[in-house]
Simulated scan of single mutants.
Amino acid sequence: MKSVWIFNKNNVGFSSGVFSELDLAESWIKENSLTGVLTKYPLDQGVFDWAVENDVHNIKPEKLAEKSKQPNFVGGFTTASQEHYHYENGVRA
């Protein structure tokens, strides 16, 4: 397993589900009529490092070294390049 799927309800700071497979996550979301976002995260690697490794960060080269030394930036980094799906009342939107 190289990644996991994490579900976040809209406007909530903590995740409510972590799944090894997309179909397991979607079954749970549907069963519970959930609204939120399901995102694929790399295992054993932060999103910032994954984005740099896969060149999906949109950070100018001259700023990359500076940003990589900022804990608040690295710790809060997200990217729309991660595979993700939106759900409304258990249905993929």
Results as ranks from 00 to 15, higher is better:
L34G: 07
S81W: 02
K69S: 10
E31I: 09
G36C: 09
F77I: 02
E53T: 11
N58H: 15
D49I: 00
N32D: 11
Q82D: 12
E26G: 06
E53W: 05
V37K: 15
F48R: 06
I29L: 14
Q82M: 15
V56F: 06
G76T: 11
V37L: 14
N72F: 03
N58I: 01
L38F: 11
S27L: 01
Q45W: 02
K40M: 12
N54V: 06
P42D: 12
D44L: 13
K40I: 06
S81F: 08
E62F: 00
D44G: 09
A80E: 07
F77Q: 07
N32P: 03
E62M: 09
G75S: 13
S68Y: 11
F77A: 04
P42C: 05
N32F: 08
V37G: 09
V74M: 04
T35L: 13
P42G: 11
F77D: 05
E66K: 02
K30W: 02
L64R: 14
W50E: 07
K30Q: 08
L43R: 01
F73D: 07
P61N: 05
Q82P: 05
A65H: 01
P42H: 12
V52E: 10
A65P: 00
D44R: 08
S33E: 05
K67L: 15
D55K: 15
F73I: 00
T79K: 03
V37S: 13
V52N: 09
K67P: 00
N72L: 01
V37I: 11
F73P: 11
L38W: 08
E62K: 14
F77E: 04
S33N: 03
K69P: 05
F77L: 01
D55P: 02
V56N: 11
I59E: 13
D49W: 04
N72I: 01
S68W: 10
V74E: 02
